[in-house]
Design a protein around this nucleic acid. Structure first.
Length: 345
DNA sequence: AAGGCGGGGGT
DNA sequence: ACCCCAGCCTT
C-alpha cells in the first residue's frame, strides 16, 4: 500500500473531532488556520469558539474594533496574527464582497496568509490540489523518506514542498492534507513516537536506519535576550491608574501596559523615583514600593523579561486615568494580565 | 538568508 | 533548560 493510502486510512480511524472539522466554510477554516499557526490545537480551541461566537461571519469581524479583536486574542500570542486577521476581514468584506477567493494565488495575497495557510484553505475549502507543509508534514516526510536536509533552510523548504506535491493524493486532497498533519501530531510525534504501532513503519527510512531521534534536522539559533522591565503602577487619590499602548516595532504591538521604564539591569527604588518626571511627568509620590518580592521572569521565545512592578501613589488626580476595575477591558500581555489578577492595594 | 514575533506544554 | 507547536512578515 502506498503512502497516501495509508495516511487516508489512518486518518479515517484516528481523526479527532475538532470544532472546525465539520465545515468547509472558508471563513471558519481561515479563522482556525490563523489561530493554529505555531499554536497547539488544544490551546487554539477555546479561542476559536470565542471568536465564532463573537463574530459569526466575516463581516462581524470586519466591523469590530481592533481593540476588541486583540482583547479576544489576548493570551494566544503572536499578536500580528490578530491585527492581520482583522485587516483581512475588512478586505474580504469590502473588496471581495464577503467571499474568500478560491485559489492559492489569490489567497496568498491576503495579510497573514502564507504558503501553508493558502494551501490549507484552497484544498480544504475549495478542493484544490495544493500541498500543505507545516511542522507535522516536515517531520513525517523527513522521517519516512530519510531526508536530512534542514527543514528551515531555503533549500529544505523548497525540497519538502516539492516532495509534498509529488506524493499528495489529489483524489481526496481535503482528507489527505488534514490526515498527514494529524498523523504528525498524534502518531509521528516529535519525541518518543510509538513506532511499534505505526502503519508506515515497514517502509520508514528513519525507523529502519534508527534515525527517528535525529530527523527532522533543524538549524537552531536560539539566542535569548535578557531585558529588565520596571512597570510603574500609578495610583492617584481616586484609585485610578495609567495604561499606555505599545507602538512601533517589537513585542506586543498595540497591546496595553503600565508606563514602562526599561533598563540594562535591575534598578532600585531611588532610580525609579529619579525617572518619574521624565516618564510620566509626575514627581514626589507619597509612597513608592516594589510590589513583587519574588522575581518575575516572563519568558518569550527569544527574550527573558525580568520584571518589577512598582506601586506609586500620588495625592493628585490623574487625567486620562483608568479605574482599577476597568483594567480588565483592555488587551494586555499575559505578563500584565497576571499582575492585574493578583494585584490588591 | 536571517531574525523577530508569545505563550504553553512536554521531556 | 530545551524543544516544539496546522507560520508569517520584515529586513
Amino acid at each position: 500500500m502506498n503512502f497516501s493510502r495509508i495516511i487516508l486510512e489512518w486518518y479515517e480511524l484516528n481523526k479527532r473531532l475538532l470544532p472546525w472539522r465539520n465545515t468547509n466554510e472558508p471563513y471558519l477554516i481561515w479563522l482556525s488556520e490563523i489561530m493554529l499557526q505555531q499554536t497547539r490545537v488544544a490551546q487554539g480551541i477555546p479561542y476559536y469558539l470565542k471568536f465564532v461566537e463573537a463574530f459569526p461571519e466575516v463581516q462581524d469581524l470586519a466591523s469590530a474594533s481592533e481593540e476588541k479583536v486583540l482583547k479576544l486574542w489576548q493570551g494566544l500570542g503572536y499578536y500580528s496574527r490578530a491585527r492581520n486577521l482583522h485587516a483581512t476581514a475588512k478586505i474580504i468584506t469590502e473588496k471581495y464582497n464577503g467571499k474568500f477567493p478560491n485559489t492559492y494565488k489569490e489567497l496568498l495575497e491576503l495579510k497573514g496568509i502564507g504558503d501553508y495557510t493558502a494551501s490549507a484553505i484552497a484544498s480544504i475549502c475549495f478542493n484544490r490540489p495544493e500541498a500543505v507543509v507545516d511542522g507535522n508534514v516536515y517531520r513525517v516526510l523527513a522521517r519516512y523518506y530519510g531526508i536530512d536536509l534542514p527543514i528551515n533552510s531555503s533549500e529544505g523548504i523548497l525540497y519538502f514542498k516539492e516532495l509534498a506535491k509529488e506524493i499528495m493524493d489529489t483524489g481526496n486532497i481535503r482528507d489527505y492534507n488534514q490526515g498527514i498533519m494529524e498523523f504528525g501530531a498524534l502518531q509521528c510525534t516529535p519525541k518518543n513516537p510509538d513506532c511499534s504501532r505505526c502503519p508506515l513503519q515497514p517502509a520508514c527510512i528513519a525507523y529502519t536506519h534508527n534515525k527517528i531521534d535525529v530527523l527532522p534536522v533543524k538549524i537552531k539559533k536560539n539566542k535569548v535576550r535578557n531585558r529588565y522591565f520596571n512597570y510603574l503602577v500609578l495610583l492617584d487619590e481616586n484609585n485610578k491608574t495609567l495604561l499606555q499602548q505599545r507602538k512601533g516595532n517589537g513585542i506586543w504591538q498595540n497591546l496595553y501596559e503600565f508606563p514602562l521604564l526599561e533598563t540594562e539591569q535591575y534598578i532600585d527604588q531611588g532610580e525609579v523615583t529619579a525617572n518619574l518626571k521624565d516618564l510620566v511627568a509626575l514627581e514626589e509620590p507619597s509612597e513608592i514600593y516594589l510590589y513583587n518580592e519574588n522575581k518575575i521572569v516572563h519568558k518569550l521565545s527569544h527574550q527573558h523579561l525580568h520584571t518589577r512592578f512598582w506601586i506609586i501613589t500620588f495625592e493628585a488626580n490623574l487625567e486620562n486615568g483608568i479605574q482599577l476595575a476597568e483594567l480588565h477591558k483592555y488587551p494586555v500581555p499575559v505578563l500584565i494580565a497576571d499582575f492585574i489578577k493578583t494585584f490588591k492595594i
